[in-house]
């Protein structure tokens, strides 16, 4: 299981909310990215938190300068909606592109990126909110807008369209540090054959144990636990190794 450091940025600051809301400013994104690279993250995900709302992505300059010093895979997301945006992101140094809102509005966008740059370049991002037991609805615009789409059906469709990975964020757990939405991750992980990145809720080492008892996603994305220095990358990695050996 890979460990991905997720950094959400708004107006030049690293921010962190709870349930993707109530965003708090935490500092200079470049310092965070470098820190997570140096501390041993397997990958980095950089998200423009408000870009899709305002139709823009401001992170290209940051991405460009960060990628001159970071030699692990970097994914960028937030507000990318055309092949020209994708090209600009890749030329700035990104390896993968995370797409949510633009895919909901035009599903063939996923296929277009996959055809031009390969499936490994496309991370389909899903923001999931629980409706009732074993049913989740997909949201867009950083958890603000409902889509009416069932998350499991949408995930399967994204795989068919050519996505190489799914980044699955639980809006209910996001920022709470109360643990993953294990039912959600298990349902989607069982429903697709591409790698799934579990995102939202990581707050303690025991959350890895309870997740891996039920299902093993290909990666976990961590934000709060790293931003607030609650856990070290090293301790997370040791726990994953320990759980895998059991």
């Amino acid at each position: 299981m890979r460990i991905i450091a997720r950094v959400d940025v708004k107006n030049g600051f690293v921010i962190k909310g709870i349930h993707l809301e109530g965003l708090r400013k935490l500092g200079d994104p470049k310092l965070f990215l470098k820190k997570y690279y140096e501390r041993g993250a397997d990958e980095i995900i950089l998200m423009d938190a408000v870009a899709s709302l305002y139709d823009r992505n401001n992170l290209f300059d940051l991405l460009k300068s960060a990628c001159e010093e970071i030699f692990i895979p970097v994914t960028i997301g937030g507000g990318l909606r055309t092949l020209a945006d994708v090209k600009k992101a890749l030329l700035s140094g990104a390896d993968k592109i995370a797409i949510n809102t633009a895919a909901i509005k035009s599903p063939k966008f996923i296929s277009e990126i996959a055809n031009s740059y390969g499936s490994q370049c496309v991370v389909a991002s899903i923001e999931a909110k629980k409706i009732n037991s074993n049913r989740w609805e997909a949201y867009i615009d950083n958890g603000r807008e409902k889509t009416g789409l069932d998350v499991l059906e949408w995930a399967t469709k994204l795989q068919t369209l050519g996505a190489g990975e799914i980044m699955l964020t639980s809006i209910d757990q996001e920022g709470t540090k109360n643990g993953f939405d294990i039912e959600l991750i298990k349902a989607i992980n069982d429903g697709v054959t591409i790698p799934v990145i579990a995102c939202g809720g990581m707050g303690a080492l025991s959350h890895i144990d309870s997740l891996c008892c039920e299902t093993t996603p290909s990666a976990i994305a961590c934000a709060s636990v790293l931003h607030y220095d609650i856990l070290t990358m090293q301790s997370i990695r040791e726990r994953i190794t320990y759980v895998n050996q059991k």
Binding site: R2, D42, S119, Q120, G164, E165, N189, D190, T193, I194, P195, T216, S218, A219
Partner: peptide, 15 residues
């Protein structure tokens, strides 16, 4: 070759 999709997903991504 993918024998058990639960543990062996494609693409193979990781260190």
């Amino acid at each position: 070759s993918v024998e058990n999709t639960k543990n062996m997903r494609l693409p193979h991504i990781g260190w």
